[in-house]
Structures are given as C-alpha cells and as structure tokens.
Write a protein that binds this DNA or RNA. Structure first.
Lengths: 344, 344
DNA sequence: ATCTCATATGAAATCGTTACCATGAAATAA
DNA sequence: TTATTTCATGGTAACGATTTCATATGAGAT
C-alpha cells in the first residue's frame, strides 16, 4: 500500500535497519549512505508511519487533554480556550501533539481517559480542572501514567504534579482592593462549588474580612453555575437584602458579565451603583462596558507551564514531581470605583 | 511489560486469535468461551493497545483538526471553540477521537498536517477555515486523505466536501434588515480578507445595495484583523467621513464588540447613534450592551455536520462527496434601531 | 604478516493486533 | 454408513517500525 522503510531499503540497496538509523540521524551511519537513503526517500515519497514506531518505541509524543464534565460549556468559556492555547504552544515547541477527550458526561469522560491511557494513545495527560473525589484522578494515579492537573489537587497534594494560582491570596487581594475603595458589604459569587478553585477563592474572600476584623455575612455568599440561567435570581436576591452589597467579587469573567447584565436590567448604573471584579482576565473582560477589573490568572501561562511540566516529567521520569504557582495580577479597569458615602 | 492479548490467551487456554475475536465480539465464538476469556481479561487487567490494532487494521478512529494560522487568536474567538464543540459532540457519538494541530505559523501547520496524515495518525481531517491558495488543501487533495472544510472552497468546489453557510445571502439579508430600518449609509467591516467567507459577505453586502438600485460607497468598506488593534482607527476614519454611516455590518461578533467600544470611546451612544450587526451569535453577542443583533451561523452545527460528513465518508469511501449549507438566522437584539430622521 | 579494534552495515527478533487459512469435531445430507 | 457442511477455534504471517547482536571491512599497532 504505502511506501515503507523496506521499500526505501530495497531501492537504496541497504538494510531496513540502516534506513531506520538514517531517519533518526544516527551518527553510526556514514554521510554518504545517509545522503543516498535520503534521496531515495525523497524520490519514492517515503513518510514514516508513526503507529509502527509507537508500537516498538512505546512513545507517542502525544499528550491527552481532559476537560471538565461541563465541557459542553467549557469551550464557551474563553478561560479554557486560553489554557488550551498555552498547552498547544508549549507542545508545538517540543513537537508533541494533542489528543482531546470528547465526552460530555462524567461517565464517558472517564471511559475516554481509560481508553487513551490504557490504549497507549498518549504519553501523559493534562487535567484542566480539579475537584474532590474525581474518578479520573484516582484512575490516573493507579495507572502509572504521568499527569499534571491545573488547579490544586483535592488531596495527596505533595505527590501530585499541578500548576495553579494562589487563589486564596488572589481572592484576598482582590477583596481587599474593594475594601480599600471603601466597600464593606461585598458579595461573593462563586462558580460551580465542586471545584477546588471555588473553595480557595471563597476562603481568601473570608480572610480579607478576618484580616480587618470584619465578618462577611452568609447571605452575601452565592454560587451560580455557568450552565444555568440563575444569574438574575442571584442578583435579585442580593439586591433585596436589607443591607445590599455595594460590591461583588465574581469568580469568573463570564459570570461577572452575566451579573453585570442582571444588575443593569434592575436599573443599576455601573460602576456607580455597584463595583464588580471578575477573574481570569479573558477577552470578554476587555470588551465589556464598563471594562471589567479582573484578576489575571494568566491562563495561557497556566496551560503552557502544565505542558512544560508534563513533558519534563516524560523526559525524566525519575525526577521528583514538581508543582508550580503562577502569580496572579489584578488588572484594574473601570468596573470598580470608590464608594461614595463612606459612612452609613 | 503490559498485559497483552497473548497473556490473556495463555491464561484462558485459547489462541490469541480467539481473544481478538472476543474483543470484536465475533459471532463465531461461543458464548461460553467469550465469558471465560472476558473474565480472564478482567482478572489480569487486560486493555487493548490501539497502536497494535491501528497498525494492522489501518483505521485510527481519529480525526485531525486544522485551525487557521491565526490559531493564536482563533482559540480566543468563541466561534472556533463552538465549532470544536460541535465536532467534539459528533465524534463522541461515533466513538472517534480528536487530534489537534498545534502550530501557529503557516509553515508549521502545513508540516503538522503532512505529519498526521502521512504518519497515519488520523483517518480524516477537518479544516476549520477556507482560503485561496492554501498549501494544506493542495496537500490534502494530493494525498487521498478524506477531508471536509468549513467554509466554501476557493476552487474545485464540486469535488470538495464542505459545510458552509450561505454567507452571501446571510450578508444580503442582514444588510437589508438595516435598510428596512431606514439606514442607507451602511459601513461594512470585514475580517481578514484572505478567507473566503470575507469575500462572500462583502459580496452579499453589495448585492443588498444593488437590489435596491443603490450603491455602497467604497469608503464604507473596511477590514480589521482580529489580531491587530486597528478597530479604533477604522471607526475614527468612518466617523470622519463627510457622510458618516449610520449603521455597520461587522462580520464577526468579536470585532463588533471592539467596534462598539471604539464608537463609545468617541462619545456615541449605542444603539441610538449607530446600529450594529455582528456575525456568529457567539456568547459575547448575548453579553454585550446593547445586546448584539447578529447573524447566527450556527457554529456548533457547522462543526457537528462537518464531523458527521467526514465520518460518513470514512465509512463509505465510495460514496460521492457531498456538501452542506447550514441555514443562518438573524437574531435580533438591541443593537439596531430604526433610523430617526429618514429624510436628510 | 598478524592481531586488534573501530566503524559501517546487515539480519532477525520484537512490539500487540488482526486476518487469512487450516483443522478437528459435530451436524446434516445422501 | 459415508460424504458434505457448518462451527468453533488454532496457527501464523503480516502491519511498519526499532533495536540488539553479529559481521565484514579496513586502519593502525606490533
């Protein structure tokens, strides 16, 4: 059917093993032979078949990417796309390829991961999320497939490779930022609370209050799922509180925009009547009006470094598992302003 | 190393070929043997190695995805993510996997495509864009690797599988929509003009004028690259025209939002002083203020159908090449209004 | 001239599956 | 009873590469 290493060998009058050595540019082959073999390869249009190589060399030069169950929506969210871009950039530099899971239920994703790991389609895996009791992670740990997760592991942190932000600190900082602007009643609107990142950010939020000897009211703490249309309800509830918040920390730009729209639909003018901060500094933060002040989690870096870390591990399997914290940066735009009437 | 079909065979006291038949659930094997073999597989933890299978069966059950050169930015743009989601959904249903190109220069993408096709890593390819003189397309045509493109082929249309919108009609419709609202001076702000879609939409724009016996002024036709910060300049130019447009057709939601921001920074209030329509109906169209009236190109469907078409071709290679037009729908939101002073 | 030792290349085993051909036993037909 | 099918399974050669071990050749040392 296609041109194989044997065809090249025959035509160049050498052994298949010699051709193989030419492919890998082995120093044991004379320049003369290399030239001859290469010109034959060119002539008869040879191209390596990776499956043959993988079978014996046991390396696919491919890494698998596992997205959230809600990947149905995670592609929507630029945060994921940006991580993917970072991963993609890094892989390209090292000549690795990407293999994507396509499932959209927890069950089917699990199966796909097993399939791609056991089936030897990938050398390693990057998991784009972190949550407790994840069967995918348990499986990856059992198998000896190297993997790195983006986000802090729910358990066995020290033996797991991960790259993450310091979400506690980031959340603390951004909440404090609002406090410095005079806000005392600050709402926290988190995302899907099953993910680790949600805990950390809520934690940091509380710490900001503790630091000042204040206390956040429980009624200020809310969650909205990216997938459900409950932004309006959460905002309504919040505005109807006796002491309605004057600022909001929303743990994701996308949700922040939904919240802003909900606020506007209640007639509030922004940022005058409500200060908002988002997270991730995605494209939408730049484009919103008012432009969103947000915590840049450097998603591209998150992806890039996770891929680097994984490929490093693949190259040196005996090296100990590292992990990495990517710094966050508060990007100030126009969605937060000094609270007018400080007393009250 | 790992558990192979031979280990199973030995333990179950059958031939490797029998195990292989059990895996594919061949009807030629008795239920009794199947049960026994399966229990052994379970017991010693067997899992198929796909590379071995691919080598002989010559089918990878994987399709490759090729993105624009500007993939650096295409991930940013939700349009691409949504197509990817559609592809992903379809592939998952048929148990196919996805293989992504990671390059970000024209040269490196080309190489990766050759690598994945010649290297037999994929059974077919989906190209997420269309432009003239694309070496990737020439290559795919030369090789006999089935592929489908999203967007109208620049040439040899009838022999190429593609899925596309009727962009000419869509653009005509949406321009006419603005005209019905009383607008006569309408700007067209296209994206990267190297892509086929840009031509079609400009074409439709002109046709809308022709249909009414009007003519679009050349100065109203502009282009902005997603990657460069020239939205403001384009807007400035347009506003400084003697007869500045009162409405704008922007061929992409993302750029539409950039244009809206540029307009606002010039002090215009929207939609009162400028009506805008976008394209693609991405998430950002829903979230913008005013919410963007846009042409829903059904990007998820675009992706979904392209994958279906490709997999169908893979299953029936002799079937003739089909192509498909996905209908577009104008989604009216708040960014377009009746022009106030009709006379003028 | 003989021996040693690189150097360049070849031969063959191997990786994990599948697919073709063969075969023995049981079932059916003559 | 014998011949002919059918059925369930076994044996083994691919598939396309890599890799280990072996070997011929020639250069240099003695």
């Amino acid at each position: 059917m296609s041109v194989t290493i044997k065809d090249v060998a025959k035509k160049a009058d050498v052994a298949p093993s010699t051709v193989s050595r030419v492919i890998s540019d082995s120093p044991r082959i004379s320049e003369k032979t290399k030239r001859r073999v290469r010109s034959v390869m060119e002539e008869i249009g040879y191209h390596i078949n990776y499956n043959g190589r993988v079978l014996v060399s046991k390396s696919t030069q491919t890494i698998g990417i596992v997205t959230k169950v809600s990947s149905v929506h995670s592609f929507d969210n630029p945060f994921f796309s940006e991580m993917l871009r970072g991963i993609s950039d890094s892989c390209h530099e090292s000549d690795y390829s990407l293999y994507l899971t396509t499932g959209n239920t927890e069950e089917s994703i699990y199966k796909e991961v097993v399939k791609m790991v056991q089936g030897k389609r990938v050398d390693g895996v990057i998991v784009l999320y972190s949550r407790a009791d994840d069967p995918v992670i348990s499986y990856l740990r059992k198998s000896d497939c190297p993997f790195v997760m983006i986000g802090k592991p729910a358990d066995r942190t020290s033996e797991t490779m991960y790259v993450d932000n310091d979400n506690i600190q980031a959340s603390l900082d951004v909440t404090d930022h609002l406090m410095k602007l005079g806000h005392k009643r600050i709402a926290f609107i988190g995302g899907d609370s099953q993910f680790e990142v949600a805990r950390d950010r809520l934690n940091g939020f509380h710490q900001a209050f503790t630091k000042r000897g204040w206390k956040a009211d429980d009624s200020w703490i809310r969650h909205i799922q990216t997938s459900s249309p409950d932004a309006q309800k959460v905002v309504d509830d919040l505005l109807e509180l006796e002491d309605a918040p004057t600022a909001m920390v929303v743990t994701d730009d996308y949700n922040a925009m939904r919240v802003m729209n909900a606020l506007r639909s209640r007639g509030l003018s922004l940022p005058q009547e409500m200060s908002i901060v988002g997270f991730n500094n995605t494209m939408i933060a730049r484009l919103s009006t008012p432009a969103l002040t947000t915590v840049d989690t450097q998603s591209v870096q998150l992806g890039y470094q996770s891929a680097e870390m994984l490929m490093d591990k693949l190259k040196h399997p005996d090296r100990i598992n590292r992990s990495m914290i990517i710094p966050t940066i508060i990007v100030e735009r126009e969605s937060c302003i000094q609270k007018k009437d400080k007393g009250e």
